[in-house]
Design a protein around this nucleic acid. Structure first.
Length: 641
RNA sequence: GCCGGGAUAGCUCAGUGGUAGAGCAGGGGUUUUGUAAACCUCAGGUCGGGGGUUCGAAUCCCUUUCCCGGCUCCA
């Protein structure tokens, strides 16, 4: 009786803020007909639209505009792609197919990797599947049944995944004959996917493990409308215009020559001056912050690298050479050099902290497939420093280092920083050097420094290197890919290997704390990110050429040369363009080269002893006295000149 | 290193078995120009390197270097 009464109650459902009454047991899709919504969130849980409503609840309908929405949409598209692949290539084995930040991928094991031609076939098949509007059915199987199911289909990767699922009920999704292991949720039917594009092919190891089989990965992206897809593709095209490799050539900043070898950067004058400015700023900040500048050789005897342990754990990346029958190593890191300087005499606790800094160029034999313009090279200028301190100084030093890093990154306009705290995997303690006490103290130090500086960070379990925990700060390139710049790392390895000590107040030799830290990370990578960050339009203080002086006709050349001289005397990086091209042509050229200021001088200016100033992005600012132009430049943000 | 795709003039690209092309950039000339492209003209490439197939190769095959997108690695 009571049950019956209960059955009559119409659950009240708050849908995106509006309350409606629905029949008990009805599915969300029964009362939500707007096709832009394809999933729902009930009490913070993402659900399919086939979810039955049995009681009062609040639900938020999900569309493509939210992060969750994108993920669901793309994940569903990846299922459709996998379905298409299975129809075209029966022997393909399914691995995994998640949504990612900008789309989705699916990994398959196939005898012959896919070719670009295959993608067209797959796209065609996908369009058919979408047109058929096949429902996504959520089904559950007992673990054993699920295993048998995939065993019958010879989907060994799925079985491997099932074996790692703790729950007994295994969640799967079915579209017609295609069934995939999946937590969901999904769009209700394949027809909910509007337009999509398969973007690229790649090899990918199963579980990212080099020892495992290489799978074929297909990347793609999807959107409700053609416009959104076109927008997305256009955004990528726009981003490619900021590619530092493209701008590096256009702005004559650097080259990498096939003849010289991969990963070796040759800085042209404009790039070299940019690098120099960045180095000078670094030098200035470091000397102010109590660092002492050191300089160490590029090669050292291999015995040093045996002692440091690099021969044991970094051999694959090292270039060795023989010099007068001795084996030498082209330095892959600066640390041993700095340690030798530290160890050159007995150190008192009074001297600590000692902070040695060096813009040291190191050489690493990086895997050829990983090289990427300036962002991954083999000759790497690291803005390296080693902080030697007492345990009691750890937190203070970390704080200072972090503050310095943030200050310097902000100076270059990097505001939104992705910060990671990498700690050890507690289940694999034997993988790491150092005692529990050392690890805990270091980790605490890193955390409290992060808190004191007020930084948000992500804790990365098991991402620490074997010799200590670390903080990393990542920069983004034009396409949103992350590149590690700043790193602050503890080292529990080198102090022991080199017995680096200090004489403490109590007259006892104690092991010193060693913290490695780099702010730019590598000058090459940093400049690569910087070029993309500014799209080549560097702020005044970084611009390789700050002012271009342009006489309108050759009659003004003499006056223009005087102006140029005054600019240079003023410390500005200025050039003159006396080509007999029209002024429009030369202005266009200077704009393309992204020069911040153009001083145009014609008969008027000669007569009135003025210049006409054109500022990048703001066009003609009109005629003014040179003094006023200099003041204008001086007041421009970051323009110390 | 692995998987896929590439490499043609300084740059961007066209050219799929029959005498290597365009635009921009560069040199010379004309033009003396007022805030994003004046005009004429010239030069420039053993088609990334090496080997092979062919009467004949930029084009087909092999190999190697380098580049691009990923995987992996990492600053």
């Amino acid at each position: 009786m009571r049950k019956k009464l209960y059955n009559c109650i119409m659950p009240k459902v708050k849908v995106n803020g509006k309350i409606i009454e629905v029949e008990k047991g009805s599915r969300i899709i029964d009362f939500v007909h707007d096709r832009q919504y394809f999933a729902a969130q009930i009490d913070n849980e993402l659900r399919d639209l086939s979810t039955e409503i049995t009681q009062d609840c609040a639900l938020k309908l999900i569309d493509i505009t939210t992060e969750h929405g994108k993920r669901i949409y793309w994940h569903s598209t990846s299922h459709i792609m996998a379905m298409a692949v299975k129809e075209l290539f029966q022997e393909a084995k399914l691995a995994i197919g998640p949504a990612i930040d900008q789309g989705f991928y699916y990994d398959f094991e196939v005898d012959k990797p896919f070719s670009p031609g295959d993608l067209e076939e797959i796209e065609k098949k996908m369009r058919e599947i979408i047109k058929k509007d096949i429902p996504f059915e959520h089904i559950f199987l007992e673990k054993k049944a699920a295993r048998d199911f995939f065993q019958n289909r010879q989907e060994s990767y799925k079985i491997e995944l099932i074996n790692e699922i703790p729950e007994e009920k295994i969640s799967l999704y079915r579209n017609g004959d295609f069934t995939d292991l999946c937590r969901g949720p999904h769009v209700p039917k394949t027809g909910f996917i509007g337009v999509f594009k398969l973007l690229s092919l790649a090899g990918a190891y199963w579980r990212g493990d080099v020892q495992q089989k290489m799978l074929s990965r297909i990347y793609g992206v999807s959107f409700p409308t053609e416009e959104e897809l076109a927008d997305y593709l256009e955004k990528i095209e726009e981003a490619k215009k900021r590619d530092h490799r493209k701008l590096g050539t256009e702005l004559e900043l650097f080259s990498i020559f096939e003849e010289a070898g991969a990963g070796m950067v040759f800085w042209h004058p404009k790039g070299a001056i940019l690098k120099r400015i960045i180095e000078e700023y670094w030098m200035d900040e470091h000397i102010r912050a109590g660092y002492e500048i050191v300089s160490t050789p590029h090669i050292a005897q291999s015995t040093l690298w045996h002692r440091s342990g690099h021969f044991d754990f970094y051999r694959d990346h090292m270039y060795t050479l023989s010099v007068a029958d001795q084996e030498y190593v082209l330095k892959p890191m600066n640390c041993p050099g700095h340690i030798l300087i530290y160890k050159s005499k007995i150190r008192s606790y009074r001297e600590l902290p000692i902070k040695y800094a060096e813009l040291g160029t190191v050489y690493r034999d990086e895997l050829s497939g990983t090289l990427h313009g300036l962002l991954r090279v083999r000759s790497i200028t690291i803005d390296d420093a080693h902080i030697f301190c007492r345990p009691a100084q750890i937190e203070e030093e970390l704080c200072k280092a972090l503050k310095l890093a943030i200050k310097m990154l902000n100076k270059f306009g990097f505001e939104h920083l992705r910060i990671d705290l990498s700690v050890r995997d507690l289940n694999q303690r034997d993988k790491y050097m150092g005692s529990d006490e050392e690890w805990e103290r270091a980790e605490q130090g890193l955390i409290s420094a992060l808190n004191r500086v007020g930084l948000d960070y992500t804790r990365q379990e098991g991402e620490a290197v074997f010799y200590g925990p670390k903080i990393d700060i990542k920069l983004l390139d034009a396409l949103g890919r992350e590149w590690q710049a700043t790193t602050i790392q503890f080292d529990f390895n080198l102090p022991k290997r080199f017995t680096i000590e200090y004489m403490d107040q109590d007259g006892i030799h104690k092991e010193v704390i060693v913290i490695h830290r780099a702010i730019y990370g590598s000058l090459e990578r940093f400049i690569g990110c910087l070029i993309e960050h500014y799209g080549g339009a560097f702020p005044l203080w970084l611009a390789p050429v700050q002012v271009m002086v342009m006489p309108i006709t050759s009659k003004e050349n003499k006056y223009a040369e005087q102006i140029l001289k005054k600019c240079i005397g003023r410390g500005l990086r200025a050039k003159i363009d006396e080509k007999s091209e029209k002024i429009n042509y030369r202005i266009r050229e200077a704009e393309i080269k992204k020069i911040p200021y153009i001083f145009v001088v014609g008969p008027k200016e000669v007569e009135k002893k003025t210049v006409s100033v054109r500022q990048r992005g703001r066009k003609d600012l009109g005629e003014m006295e040179l003094k006023k132009a200099f003041n204008l430049i001086k007041t421009e943000q970051g323009g110390e000149n």
